[in-house]
Design a protein around this nucleic acid. Sequence first.
DNA 1: CTAATGAATCAATATTTCTTGATGGGATGG
DNA 2: CCATCCCATCAAGAAATATTGATTCATTAG
Lengths: 106, 106
Amino acid sequence: MVALSVSLKKSVTLFHALSDETRLALLERLKEGEQCVCELTDAMKATQSRLSFHLKVLKEAGLIRDRREGRWMYYSIDPDAIEELETVVDTLKQVAKSAVSANRCC
Amino acid sequence: MVALSVSLKKSVTLFHALSDETRLALLERLKEGEQCVCELTDAMKATQSRLSFHLKVLKEAGLIRDRREGRWMYYSIDPDAIEELETVVDTLKQVAKSAVSANRCC
DNA sequence: CTAATGAATCAATATTTCTTGATGGGATGG
DNA sequence: CCATCCCATCAAGAAATATTGATTCATTAG
């Protein structure tokens, strides 16, 4: 219960945000740099409302940031979040490493 | 669309398997080493049926392995899967790294 | 062979998540 | 102001996931 449980809910949120094709595609798109919703809507075949929903999920997981400029909202990847994700995965790695011996059961 | 898309579905499956509190708790438990369902059922407050369901999700994502011994099924973390996860996260990291410049929009 | 045990599976229900279309809000251009 | 544009939000319905209890299956003990 050591490391994972501290940020268990956070881990769940992070992984959930990443467990969707559309959202992963969005992240890939944002690889090109900061982009506004209309660009993303054009690039991916998706309605504005749908993307807005997924962008919100990504944002609430802390994976992306937004910035307003006039009527446009620009979204970009938050590098800190990716580090956080790495940390979580590292924890899992530790978990896996220590999993060795079997005990007699029941 | 380079690296992520190759294993997009796989990534989704992996992340989805990890996006649940019960399943993360299971992985944490398996940190102690190989364990049978009855042990896990005792340790976590969960019905056998429920755990069986989540173990299946983890297994189908390739995160854990099972081994039969008599009437007991032993589950353990699959270290390969954790590496795979690392790879996926590394890809995301690359994505984040390259996300720098903003373009004029719309 | 029969009974009992550990666990998977199934059907039904509940819960969560996603999609769609409509509405509203903030900003800009005229 | 007024109309328009970009986007968030909302309500409703659809779809996917999760939980529960019952059943089934495989294995072992007697």
